[in-house]
Simulated scan of single mutants.
Amino acid sequence: ETLAQAVVRRCADEIFEPPAIRSRAAFEAAVARRTDFSLRAQQVMDDLADWFGRAVHLRGRLKELQRAFPEAIGDARAQLDSLLAEDCVDTIPSAHWARVTIYLQALERRLERLANKPQRDAQCQQQIHAVRGKEALPLNAAARWIEEEWRVALFAQELKAQGGPSAATLQRALSASAAQSAR
């Protein structure tokens, strides 16, 4: 039920713009978009079903690889857990929603390659942790999405990261966030 409510909130906010419904005309315009709402809700549910299905597969792989590669698996598990956290429907920004599948695919590729190149995986993981530490960034932080794209660039280049992610761009985003928090 919590998930269903989150889907309804997300779709209503995207389609109806509830704060703007202050007149009869705005209400009638919203009613006219109810089909759009249904289509968007179906798409969100399809996305979630795909993500959760991938997560089940990934969790199985994480369990298989845990003993051999505990550090890499801990990092991968933290990424998966935070990406699909209980509040993900409410907190994943619309601009990044469509890329979540890519982030999950990149995680799959990382796990596929881990046994063949554990040193490379450790180096990539170290690059990320050197910039942001070991704690996962929240889903509503701009830096989080730079990190996800950087992970695509590091672990699954063929999936084509967007926005030119790097240690420097992640550091700038973290610094900007810290400066904004200090205000």
Rank of each mutant, 00 (worst) to 15 (best):
T2Q: 11
L3F: 06
A4T: 07
A4S: 11
A6R: 03
R10N: 10
R10W: 07
R10I: 09
C11A: 13
E14D: 14
E14Q: 15
F16D: 02
F16P: 02
E17W: 10
P18T: 08
P18S: 08
A20S: 15
A20G: 11
I21K: 06
F27R: 13
E28H: 07
E28M: 09
A29T: 06
A30H: 05
A32G: 12
R34Y: 10
S38P: 01
L39V: 15
Q42T: 11
D47E: 04
D50G: 02
W51F: 14
V56G: 00
R61Y: 01
L62F: 07
L62Y: 04
K63G: 08
Q66D: 09
R67V: 09
A68E: 13
A68C: 07
F69Q: 05
P70F: 03
E71P: 01
A72L: 02
A72Q: 04
I73C: 10
I73F: 03
G74A: 10
A76P: 00
Q79M: 10
L80V: 02
D81G: 04
L83G: 01
L84V: 01
D87W: 05
C88D: 00
V89Y: 01
D90N: 11
D90S: 12
I92Q: 02
P93M: 08
P93H: 08
S94K: 13
A95N: 09
R99G: 03
V100H: 00
I102T: 14
L104P: 00
A106I: 02
L107P: 00
R113D: 14
N116S: 15
A122Q: 13
A122W: 07
A122M: 13
Q123R: 15
C124P: 02
Q125N: 08
Q126H: 14
Q127A: 12
I128H: 01
V131Y: 03
E135Q: 15
L137I: 07
P138K: 14
L139W: 03
L139M: 06
L139I: 08
N140F: 11
A141Y: 03
A142L: 05
A142K: 05
E148A: 12
R151F: 04
R151N: 04
L154K: 02
A156P: 01
Q157R: 15
E158H: 14
L159S: 05
L159R: 03
A161S: 13
G163S: 09
P165H: 06
S166R: 07
T169K: 08
Q171L: 11
R172F: 07
L174V: 05
L174D: 05
S175D: 15
S175I: 05
S177M: 12
A178V: 12
A179L: 14
S181Y: 06
